[in-house]
Design a protein around this nucleic acid. Sequence first.
DNA 1: ACATATAATATGGTCAGACCAATTTTAATT
DNA 2: AATTAAAATTGGTCTGACCATATTATATGT
Lengths: 231, 231
Amino acid sequence: MAIQRASLVEITMDRIKSHILENNLKENDKFLSEKELVNQLQVSRTVIREALRSLESIGILKVKPGDGTFVGSGNFDSIKTILKHHFEAYGVKIRELLEIRKVIELGALRLIIEKELKVDVHYLTEINHAYYQAIQEHTDTKAHDQLFHQQLIKETQNQTFYHFADVIQDYFSLVKMDVTQNKENLLMSYQEHQKIIQALQQKNLQTAQMVMTQHFKPVFQYIHEMEGNKS
Amino acid sequence: MAIQRASLVEITMDRIKSHILENNLKENDKFLSEKELVNQLQVSRTVIREALRSLESIGILKVKPGDGTFVGSGNFDSIKTILKHHFEAYGVKIRELLEIRKVIELGALRLIIEKELKVDVHYLTEINHAYYQAIQEHTDTKAHDQLFHQQLIKETQNQTFYHFADVIQDYFSLVKMDVTQNKENLLMSYQEHQKIIQALQQKNLQTAQMVMTQHFKPVFQYIHEMEGNKS
DNA sequence: ACATATAATATGGTCAGACCAATTTTAATT
DNA sequence: AATTAAAATTGGTCTGACCATATTATATGT
């Protein structure tokens, strides 16, 4: 089988990536202009533009009309875009995503406790209290609940884990789930949050994981019922 | 502040994605030609090509010279490409990646046991035996070890989790770690695998997770020493 | 000397036409 | 029916032109 020859566009993309790495360019750094790239790489502006557009779509570069080309931010927005399309094209099993969330959150608890990290109990309690207020005032509780879980991941002091979890959470939020909980369940949820905080303080992994599992129960139940309805 | 107007290329990308979704196009389906797109969307071939290239780089399309444009496979190769560049540009903390692996694998054990799944004990034992053979014959043991862990993830019967774990494993393998283990440690590793299989059979989550934690210990130790050397 | 307006320049966006390269399809020949 | 050659289709690359956006330099007024 013949070796598949790379196109000039592909070669150009590799050259640009190498240039970024070799020059230690960081996010928002000014990159070479199209004209400079044409001169340096000795290819047409068409090839340069196709390469730049491709690198832009995966977040490596950012192109601004009239201004120039810049190194992209190191965030995972492009991965989120890919997953969004993947979700739209192929869908996803909600149960699978929920299981992944459970893996992540129970894992977070374990990391915090096994690494003997000192969690920001005050801030977590503050978030949970705001959650309680929202429950009482019948305002949006989802944001508070999500902030609580997000802060737990942050408390693991593992930035890569935090970013991956963020991507997955974003993927998860693409799924439209109408789990409208009544006040009683919401209050229970608030109490579970409180118990998780306590368990973290007491460095009790078993309890923390048990309560978190409890926390997920209503949503798993909901999905179980949805899946049952489809049978 | 004025609303930032989308370029024709961006509009074209959206139109193409919509076309894929609305026509339920699946991977490897033949897509429209450049000529057809020019006629249909009434933009220049330059705009079409830039859009196609961009969509190719995120895996949504696949362009073959002389043949045509096809819908991309639904795999996560493009995500791996993004993470590879991200790793090369920004690096990653090995400890953080290892912690994530631990979260994933301990979580996999939990999923298997809590979902009361019947694991393929025979196949897992087979893989582990091949691992043992490789240890005895001083051949490459990494592939067998990785296959074992990969199979564990597969036994969770959660495809999304499996694919995400695969992406992270790929990211992890970018890190060159020279953890050359001696035979004694490798044999211990083999025994740990055996114990994990037994614990799964007995549906003993605590034992399975404890042994898996044990399994990770040498690498965490290695990283701890590396980090110590840098202090 | 400073502020404002205008012009020039730099940079990216889009277009059309031409030509090359790879693959497929069609037609001609045996 | 099989083989070969030609034609057509499809993507790759190039050049030059012109438009749009943003920045920089220059001119003008106070």
